[in-house]
């Protein structure tokens, strides 16, 4: 009997359908429907007998839940196992379910920090910072980069899983996954630090001090030469004196004082406060609504 093999076309078809893994996400068996849907091209190719097909479909409707991208190497391994089974090898149902359950937990632990908390915030912030200026390039960059990375990851890790088969568990313990997660969380924390500095904006407007400046520290508007000569002179003085040179009085706001310590100090304090509140189990929505309320009150009372 000739050996039954999954063709590249079968595997690509599985990879395409695997993108719809979460479509029927449900509170009972989570991603089971999508998993079964993705396996269908392989089941059709491997089993011709009606009873075997029914058994295979049922086998792949078991409970399953992981990160939708790192699920790709798992489905690769399961494809290899199903192929062996179709060729007569002794692969029990429990072995297949065991591989799925055994891999989904640890791999989800990699997928969440890498994709949701490192790659997406970085690409999202990159695109968003361009979009804030109204540039079309922002959304396009985000969409294209993300999908290129995602599709390449889905296909190549599925092929990797398929080629190593059940021995993948050994490969994973080589520490590669741990290292990837560690690099992702270092990079993620670094970038989040930068984002907090750049994109959390708090501005306290209360005036801390108003000082009359010494002669020469401000532009003496009354004694400027007339016409364009005067504009030139004013601009020259402005270039050397800076913004405080515009008025006789030097106004310092609370914000300027805080920024002299570290720029963005208030932003980081707010972020850490949010971390605290979230850890205490307060819902993010409640915090967001409260911040809007603070913003409105701050504006009403003129301190923000």
């Amino acid at each position: 009997m000739a050996e039954i093999k999954l063709s590249q076309k079968d595997r690509m078809s599985v990879a395409w359908r695997h993108q719809f893994l979460q479509g029927s996400w449900n509170y009972e068996r989570m991603q089971n429907g999508g998993w079964c849907y993705a396996m269908i091209p392989a089941i059709k190719a491997l089993y011709k007998d009606k009873d075997e097909q029914a058994a295979a479909l049922k086998r792949h409707l078991e409970f399953y839940n992981t990160h939708p991208y790192v699920s790709a190497p798992i489905i690769g391994v399961v494809l290899a196992l199903e192929e062996e089974r179709a060729n007569g090898a002794q692969v029990e149902d429990t072995a297949i379910q065991g591989v799925k359950v055994g891999m989904m937990g640890p791999l989800a632990g990699v997928g969440d920090p890498v994709f949701w908390f490192t790659v997406r915030p970085i690409l999202g912030a990159l695109g968003a910072s361009m979009a804030l200026g109204g540039s079309m390039l922002g959304p396009i960059l985000f969409f294209v980069l993300w999908n290129v990375i995602r599709m390449a990851f889905l296909w190549y890790t599925q092929e990797f899983g398929y080629s190593v088969g059940a021995s993948i568990a050994k490969d994973l313990s080589g520490g590669l996954l741990g290292k990837v997660t560690e690099i992702a969380s270092i990079l993620g924390m670094f970038i989040i630090g930068a984002l907090v500095q750049r994109w959390v904006s708090i501005s306290f407007t209360p005036v801390v001090s108003t000082v009359e400046q010494a002669e020469g520290a401000f532009i003496d508007w009354a004694s400027l030469p007339a016409g364009t000569e005067g504009i030139k002179s004013a601009l020259e003085q402005y270039a050397s004196l800076g913004p405080t040179g515009l008025n006789v009085e030097k106004v310092t706001t609370l914000q300027q004082n805080l920024d002299q310590l570290i720029p963005g100090l208030a932003a980081v304090a707010l972020t850490l406060l949010c971390c605290r509140l979230l850890k205490k189990g307060i819902s993010p929505i409640a915090i967001i609504l409260a911040l809007f309320a603070v913003g409105i009150v701050g504006r009403l009372l003129n301190f923000m």
Binding site: V196, V200, L270, T271, C274, I288, L291, G295, G298
Partner: peptide, 17 residues
């Protein structure tokens, strides 16, 4: 005020990460 609030709420998302 909503503009001011909008500037601050990004902190919640970062805190989740």
């Amino acid at each position: 005020g909503m503009g001011v609030g909008g500037g601050m709420v990004a902190a919640v998302g970062y805190a989740m990460v």
